[in-house]
Design a protein around this nucleic acid. Structure first.
Length: 430
DNA sequence: TCTGGGGTCCTAGGACCC
DNA sequence: TCTGGGGTCCTAGGACCC
């Protein structure tokens, strides 16, 4: 509890409306005003819906696509497989636009960023409106802007901006009279507050706390005793104390996971090896992008939770003798673990690799078993591999182990072209 | 018969977020 | 047939140490 910042702060939260669906629509003007959904990896579940789709299919978020597809087609819904290359690129444009408005932008997720507006003079509501309009003009994305004295309040303001009648995508709680705030917050279920999920909502309801205003009025010390320090901080943040600051230099990641379900079941060790190799390389690539090294790796394989056969899960940690960022070493280590946990006769659905105990520099010691810290030579090799894959396309160069089976890849039946990241995907002029 | 008390590390599980 | 993937933080309890 040492990081409470006593000086008055003002933060804005900007997030894109139905981000994935909007990205798809930006390049398909013919779909404007029509229902669009985006599916998870493997075309498994609905993970994004635009406004029009929400009206027709209100409760379809996270439902398996195979269950709702017929109904969706009947309503003229267009479905897309996830196209993360496109979303990442649109996200970068969005963030670049936000940087015009504040020197401090904290990227919170692919479609959400906090801006530090502390000390800015003038009408913040007007500033919020300007941010919203500029993003619309420069990227084609619709966004909501919420402003408040803490991150929790900025989040809540954002919720109001997007969902409460009378707000057109911008809400500034920092300058709103308390009377009006009370009216607004009394009409928001307590689960609208950042940090209050379904479990906490149920517990709070039992104690008579049903709306956001009531939670704001709660005694922080009692909340701490009953619920712990996290909710106590939330209550304080609702009252304008900034316990979480907005900053660019986030602490390093603590773990990196790459895992995914297969398009079809695998039983064969060789095919599983291809998948595990991919995840080891993929996780290592993302780790190098953050400038980190790992000294522990975890490999897991499992069949499905919904299977007739009993749920099978196997996973094992391997402590590495010294921190590394080398794809080759990590892939070898991952395959070594895989061979130990693999059991024949199981219809595997998913595999994953987790890198944990991340550190910011390579180890020095050489160990006895031939596993050495990265050499300058291996560092150059990794840098070359990354730059080629970045320049051309991910997966242009990969380790041989990945190529031994290619049956495990994702189903992506409704993939849009990569409009912004590949020449072949550029929209054609009419 | 008496059965301390403080500290650390690790793990599992719970809750939340996008 | 088909049910996402990737993270964080906190707490409690056990093992172990002095």
């Amino acid at each position: 509890m040492s990081n409470f910042m006593p000086s008055p702060t003002t933060y804005a939260l900007c997030d894109a409306n139905s981000f994935y669906a909007s990205c798809e629509q930006v390049f398909r003007p013919d779909l404007r005003g029509k229902p669009v959904v985006v599916l998870s990896n493997n075309d498994g579940c609905v993970i994004a819906q635009n406004k029009e789709a929400k009206q027709k299919l209100a409760l379809w978020m996270c439902r398996p696509w195979f269950e709702v597809e017929r109904e969706a087609r009947k309503h003229g819904v267009t479905a897309f497989s996830s196209n993360y290359a496109l979303y990442a690129d649109m996200s970068n444009r969005f963030i670049a636009t936000l940087r015009q408005f504040s020197p401090v932008v904290e990227v919170y997720s692919i479609d959400e960023s906090f801006l530090d507006l502390t000390g800015m003079q003038g009408d913040l509501f007007a500033l919020g409106t300007s941010i919203k309009n500029t993003v619309q003009q420069w990227t084609g994305l619709g966004i909501g802007v919420g402003i408040g004295h803490s991150k929790t309040l900025a989040k809540l303001a954002n919720h109001i901006a997007k969902r409460v009648e009378g707000f057109d995508g911008v809400c500034d709680l920092s300058s709103m009279p308390m009377k009006q705030q009370q009216q607004l917050l009394e009409n928001l279920p307590v689960s609208c507050v950042w940090g209050v999920g379904s479990r906490l909502e149920r517990k709070l309801n039992k104690l008579g706390v049903h709306n956001a205003w009531r939670l704001k009025q709660a005694d922080p010390k009692r909340v701490r005793d009953e619920f712990g320090v996290i909710l106590e901080r939330t209550v304080r943040e609702l009252n304008g104390e900034a316990w979480h600051s907005v900053g660019e230099d986030l602490p390093d990641a603590k773990q990196i996971i790459s895992s995914r379900s297969f398009a079809k079941r695998l039983t064969d060790l060789q095919e599983l090896s291809a998948a595990v190799s991919f995840h080891a390389s993929n996780a290592a690539l993302r780790m190098r992008a953050k400038g980190l090294y790992t000294s522990a790796l975890y490999v897991s394989i499992n069949n499905g939770l919904h299977d007739q056969a009993a749920f099978f899960h196997a996973g094992q940690f391997l402590a590495l003798p010294s921190p590394t960022n080398c794809s080759i070493q990590l892939t070898q280590a991952a395959l070594w673990v895989l061979r130990r946990i693999y059991r024949p006769g199981i219809y595997y659905l998913k595999a994953g690799v987790m890198l944990s105990e991340l550190v910011s520099s390579a180890g020095q010691q050489q160990d006895l078993f031939g596993f050495s810290a990265p050499t300058p030579k291996s560092q150059r090799l990794m840098a070359t591999l990354d730059s080629i894959n970045q320049r051309y396309k991910r997966g242009t160069i990969k380790l041989a182990a990945e190529a031994l089976g290619d049956d495990w890849g994702m189903r992506r039946a409704f993939l849009s072209p990569s409009y912004t990241t590949e020449w072949s995907g550029l929209p054609k002029a009419k």
